[in-house]
Design a protein around this nucleic acid. Structure first.
Length: 279
DNA sequence: GACCAGGCGTCTT
DNA sequence: AAGACGCATGGT
């Protein structure tokens, strides 16, 4: 992977395939939107834009030079997906996933943001999740220089009440969001503490938060803590896909295939072998 | 209008 | 331990 930072613009040539649309709109993150010539979004407290050049170069604006390593990691540009996909092609199922959505990468997102957005995601759909997340940030996030607002910090939410969260129209999840914010703000649950725990204990600690069950906990471990080795997410997706497609998954159901792919990527990359998984 | 959405907490057996 | 059910809201 090569990159160059010049005149406030970061130009990256990723190793292996990358598709911004597949990566940003497959349901792993909720703060990006398409624009006339590319994409704009907010991540790790920065408002940035992304454009893809014909030659595969990815152009990012809105970053300081000191942000470069963080965002190379955010987009997984510091990982060799070409080599990864070569290994995965040996599995028929994974080969099909790659064919359906070859440019997906698993983003490395902020822990607290992942925790709250996947609490919001329960029994919910992506358009509505996106709306709730947008209102959450608009209502409680810090204004950013480049426009928009950061994702709220735990302390931005910990002292609120469910009544103050009513405008989110998040339903019963408002109560869960507050419990999560309070437990993180108090230090009862946090990235560092979770990182020190073995994964079963980390999952159990996450599940002390109201509204965090095994599915949300695994999403947080996977997306927010880079702890995919115990996340049999393809098992979760098998359930979801079985519900949506009782007669079998269509070959090009991009949303499902893409999401399954990113889960499986992590499972494979970390040598995890599903052994029944949850349930 | 129904039905459902990338669950979870609670209440039953 | 496992199943049923309600939960608030909005998209289809």
């Amino acid at each position: 992977m090569e990159w160059r930072y010049e005149n406030g613009e970061l130009a990256v040539r990723p190793d292996g395939p990358f598709s911004a649309a597949e990566t940003l709109f497959c349901g792993q993150c909720f703060r990006w939107r398409q624009t006339a010539d590319g994409f704009e979004g907010i991540a790790h407290g920065r408002a940035l834009t992304l454009r893809e050049r014909q030659d595969g170069t990815v152009l990012l604006t809105g970053l300081e030079e000191s942000d470069v390593p963080l965002f190379l990691h955010y987009f997984a540009f510091d990982e060799d997906y070409a080599a990864l996909q070569r290994r995965l092609q040996r599995s028929k199922r994974l080969a099909e996933c790659i064919r359906c959505a070859p440019g997906i990468r698993v983003l490395h997102q902020d822990f607290f943001e992942v925790l709250l957005t996947f609490i919001i995601s329960q029994n919910n759909n992506i358009p509505r999740i996106t709306g709730i997340v947008a209102r959450l940030c608009e209502g409680f996030g810090a204004p950013l220089a480049g426009g928009g607002r950061a994702f709220p910090l735990p302390c931005d939410l910990a002292d609120r009440t469910v009544e103050e969260l009513a405008f989110l129209r998040a339903g019963w999840r408002a109560d869960y969001l507050l419990d999560a914010a309070r437990k993180v703000a108090s230090g009862e649950v946090g990235r560092e503490k979770l990182a020190r725990l073995a994964t079963p204990e980390a999952r159990a600690l996450l599940m002390t938060i109201r509204g965090v069950g095994p599915k949300v906990a695994d999403c947080v471990l996977l997306y927010g803590l880079e702890r995919a080795e115990v996340c049999p997410m393809d098992v979760w997706m098998k359930r979801a896909m079985a519900r949506r497609f009782p007669r079998g998954m269509p070959l090009c159901a991009r949303d499902c295939a893409g999401v399954a792919q990113q889960y499986i990527f992590h499972a494979e990359r970390t040598s995890f072998r599903p052994q029944g998984g949850p349930g």
